[in-house]
């Protein structure tokens, strides 16, 4: 492009010079001074044109810088300061290397995570969960054992209480029956004694009553003897008994 522009600028200069020639040819009668002035003006114009073209050439250099730099970057892998026109994240020349390194690093990360790090952490958590569950189960087992012991203790206590109750009842019944037997014995004994005593009293009473007859007879004998002479004891007794019966 730059070269083309350069060529076109030289063509322009050449045209300008031919124009000058033409004007000379068209105006042969002109004074040399005028001719010089025209020539100066034309040269000036040509120079201006050339300068303008130079500016264009510079501009085209700037425009051309981009592909050149890109080519440069692609072949050399280096970037120059001129490469500013592309917004860096959209610079497609960096896409290839970035994708390559992303695939490499992310692949390595995925492998390390899925093969080493995550299974290891998972295992740690699993072991801990198992351990906690095991400990909880053990605690539960021990608690049940304690409950069982408490139950057995209470059952034994109740049994013992029932047993002691039974013993007390039994003892009470035994004592009662013994006491009853003794009381019966004593009562029988007493009844017997009472009966004996009553019999004795009766005997004594009859004896006494008999003795009373005797005494009455004797007293009658004595009284009669004193009053009317001697009476036999036998008659007296008959008399007394008559009176008593009478």
């Amino acid at each position: 492009m730059a070269e083309q522009d350069l060529t076109s600028s030289s063509i322009l200069i050449a045209q300008a010079q031919t124009d000058t020639g033409n004007s000379e040819a068209q105006q042969p009668g002109n004074a040399a001074g005028t001719n010089d002035a025209v020539e100066e003006q034309v040269v000036q114009e040509a120079n201006d044109a050339a300068q303008g073209i130079t500016v264009v050439v510079e501009g085209s250099e700037v425009v051309a810088a981009d592909p050149a730099v890109e080519l440069h970057a692609e072949t050399q892998g280096a970037y120059t300061e001129q490469e500013k026109s592309v917004f860096p994240p959209f610079d497609s020349s960096t896409f290839g290397p970035q994708l390559f390194w992303l695939a490499l690093t992310f692949g390595v990360l995925y492998l390390l995570m899925s093969k080493i790090a995550l299974p290891r952490i998972g295992e740690i958590l699993e072991v801990r969960r198992d351990r906690i569950e095991g400990d909880l189960a053990e605690a539960e087992r021990l608690r049940q054992k304690t409950d069982q012991a408490i139950e057995a203790f209470e059952a034994e206590l109740a049994e013992a209480r029932a047993k002691s109750h039974g013993i007390a009842d039994e003892t009470r019944a035994k004592i009662k029956s013994e006491m009853d037997a003794k009381r019966r014995d004593v009562e029988a004994d007493l009844a017997k004694q009472v009966a004996t005593a009553e019999a004795r009293i009766l005997k004594t009473k009859t004896d006494a009553l008999a003795n009373v007859d005797q005494i009455a007879a004797e007293t009658a004998v004595a009284v009669v003897g004193k009053l009317a002479g001697k009476v036999s004891i036998k008659d007296a007794r008959v008399a007394v008994s008559d009176v008593v019966k009478g």
Binding site: T94, P97, F100, W101, L102, T105, F106, V108, L112
Partner: peptide
């Protein structure tokens, strides 16, 4: 196969 600052920080991240 250029090693860029982008690649460096990917490597650092991983």
């Amino acid at each position: 196969l250029v090693f860029t600052n982008s690649a460096l920080f990917m490597v650092l991240t991983v």
